Simulated scan of single mutants.
Amino acid sequence: MTETAAAAEWRWARADEQARLVLAAEPPRRLPVLAVGALVAVVLVVVLGVALATPPDSAPRWAVAVVGAVLGFAMVGVDVVRTVRGSRRRPELLPVISSLTGREQRAVGRAVHGRVVAPADRLRVVRAAAVQTASGQGVLVALGLLLVIGSVAGTGAGETGSWFVVATAALVQLVSAVVALRAVAAARRFVGSEPVDARRSSLSDRNPGTRSGRSDGS
């Protein structure tokens, strides 16, 4: 076995061990992503609507923008605290794919989205990653940052210069939020399409190697 293959085997073995913990435990509570997304959309519409309807530096514009930014920061804070505290008390909440390279993580994502078929010795990792993503991991951060940047843009919606930079950042964050929401939707479809026995199985076989995994990310 080459050094590269041995390193890949070690990464996937770590991911596989974490996947065992995830699949053996109760699935994490699912975030109501549609409700949270709708709330963020409503707040953004209000923030930008007030910004366009009021003059620069007006009290209503700043008040609404501050409320939106505070709500966004609160969403980010809740997600960070929940992740840190949860991972200390429940090791199965730690990300399954954290030991994998970026290429390997993208391969797992393609399998969850149904774009490729995961090989048998990688399927446990894909299942566990789907279970974690289906809970809404990272969505609060993505939507919270979108709300913060959108609120900052709303404070200068009638001006030029630096506002254009902020608006561009808001657009980039909007794309990031949409990607996060699509990932959750794909993961929930993946988990929902599997038989219950397959989802709960710990698949006691150990990773046999990296041969079948190379075509899907190692």
Rank of each mutant, 00 (worst) to 15 (best):
L94Q: 13
E92S: 11
G150Y: 03
G209C: 05
A8L: 12
G161M: 02
F73Y: 13
L147I: 06
A59Y: 12
P32Y: 01
A170H: 05
V42G: 12
E159W: 10
V148T: 05
L44T: 05
G114I: 00
R127S: 08
L93F: 08
V152C: 06
P27T: 04
A74C: 10
L203V: 07
A5L: 12
A15I: 04
V165Q: 12
I97Q: 13
S193R: 13
G114E: 02
A63N: 11
P56C: 06
L140W: 03
G213N: 02
A118M: 12
A177H: 04
R199W: 12
A180F: 02
A41F: 11
G150K: 00
L174K: 05
V125I: 06
A38D: 11
A8R: 11
T54Q: 14
A51S: 14
A15T: 01
A59L: 14
D205C: 05
A198I: 12
R189E: 11
V166H: 09
R214Y: 14
P60Q: 03
A13W: 07
R82N: 13
V112Q: 01
S212C: 10
R122S: 12
G136E: 02
P32Q: 01
A120Q: 13
V131Y: 03
A53G: 13
A63P: 07
P55M: 09
V108R: 02
V43G: 06
T168Q: 07
A177K: 02
V191F: 05
G209S: 05
R211Y: 11
A180H: 05
R115E: 15
A107S: 14
A167T: 14
V76C: 11
G138F: 00
L181A: 09
L44H: 07
V50C: 08
A187K: 00
V166W: 14
S202D: 14
D121N: 14
S87G: 07
A107F: 06
L94C: 03
L44W: 09
L71G: 15
Q132R: 08
A134L: 04
L100Q: 05
R88A: 15
V125K: 01
G86W: 00
S99Q: 09
A19I: 01
T168H: 11
A157V: 10
A180L: 04
P195I: 01
W163V: 13
E26C: 04
G192W: 01
S204M: 11
A187I: 00
A107N: 06
V50M: 03
W12R: 03
R110L: 13
L93D: 08
V70T: 13
V141E: 01
R103K: 10
L48C: 04
V148F: 03
V112A: 04
V22M: 08
T210Y: 02
A15R: 02
L174E: 05
R20I: 11
A63F: 14
R211P: 03
V108L: 05
P56L: 10
L31F: 00
E3F: 10
S215D: 11
S201A: 15
L31M: 08
D79R: 00
V165N: 05
P119W: 00
V22E: 10
P28C: 01
R103L: 11
L23N: 04
S176G: 12
Q137F: 04
G37N: 05
P91E: 03
L71S: 08
R90N: 13
R110P: 06
V116F: 02
A59N: 07
A7K: 14
Q173P: 10
R110W: 11
G217F: 07
A15E: 05
V196L: 15
A157T: 06
L31N: 04
